[in-house]
């Protein structure tokens, strides 16, 4: 038996919003420790890794490990049926071929359940080693979304250049070029408004703006986004999911032809 209850169904809605731009379907791997998801986008260029810890749920029970392959379009339709203030419970029997979503209004006067067919997905998992990154930048998630949106008007690529002074985002194309420099915040009153750089060595890397824009669909999950970069390895874009977990996106830097 698997059962996971979240008082804030809006978290699940936001998680889905954060992944459905990149993925059509995904396997939710449920175990005693929580729910994990790892999937590459269709083009195998980027990867989504999500973790929701069992202790972050209001109730969590997972007697046997269960992998639930879900069509994210169908899941979106079902979660649209939940009000933001509803309590959501996901349930499945062991070896089940369906999952049930139960939505309860805060006053318990309305209870709805939606059963969704599961899919057998043959998804490849990649082993991602623990990595020390040359630069780790934290900045307001809304600012990062704005920068990605603004720069994608100029070109297909965004150059991210990080030094101890700050971080610079650049793009160039047919209409011209654009540079956005963010200085490291000198005095931090509020962490969610700060720009911070932890740097071992300066790094300059080039990324596809289309994917960066897709990653920013997670903006509503967190006030802060963390970018981890090293020369010649994939960028990690991480958003915390409240007190319950995180979502990470991986994207390899473009290389010279």
């Amino acid at each position: 038996m698997f059962e996971a209850r979240l008082v804030q169904s809006s978290i699940l809605k936001k998680v889905l919003e954060a992944i459905k731009d990149l993925l059509n379907e995904a396997t939710f791997d449920c175990s005693d420790s929580g729910i994990q998801l790892q999937a590459m986008d269709n083009s195998h260029v980027s990867l989504v890794s999500m973790n929701l810890r069992s202790d972050g749920f209001d109730k969590y029970r997972c007697d046997r490990n269960i992998s639930m392959g879900m069509n994210l379009g169908s899941m979106t339709k079902i979660l649209k049926c939940a009000a933001n203030e509803d309590v959501v419970t996901m349930k499945a029997q062991d070896n089940a071929d369906t999952v049930t979503f139960v939505f309860e209004s805060p006053n318990q006067e309305k209870v709805s359940d939606y059963e969704m067919k599961l899919m057998n997905l043959d998804q490849e998992h990649l082993g991602i080693p623990e990595t020390e990154y040359a630069c780790v930048v934290r900045l307001p998630a809304g600012e990062f979304a704005r920068i990605c949106r603004d720069l994608s008007q100029f070109g297909e690529s965004v150059v991210i250049s990080c030094t101890k002074e700050g971080v610079k985002f650049s793009s160039a194309g047919d209409i011209g070029s654009a540079n956005i420099k963010l200085a490291q915040t000198s005095n931090v009153d509020k962490e969610e408004l700060a720009v911070t750089v932890e740097m071992q060595e300066p790094v300059t890397l080039t990324f596809a703006s289309r994917y960066l824009n897709s990653f920013t669909k997670a903006t509503s999950l967190s006030n802060v986004v963390q970018l981890s970069m090293s020369p010649d390895v994939p960028l990690v874009v991480e958003y915390r999911i409240g007190e319950i977990g995180h979502i990470r996106y991986y994207l390899a830097p473009k290389i010279e032809d």
Partner: peptide, 14 residues
Amino acid sequence: SRLQPFLKDFYVPH
């Protein structure tokens, strides 16, 4: 121009 590598060029499937 620049090429976009696949993630499998960096991480091993398991």
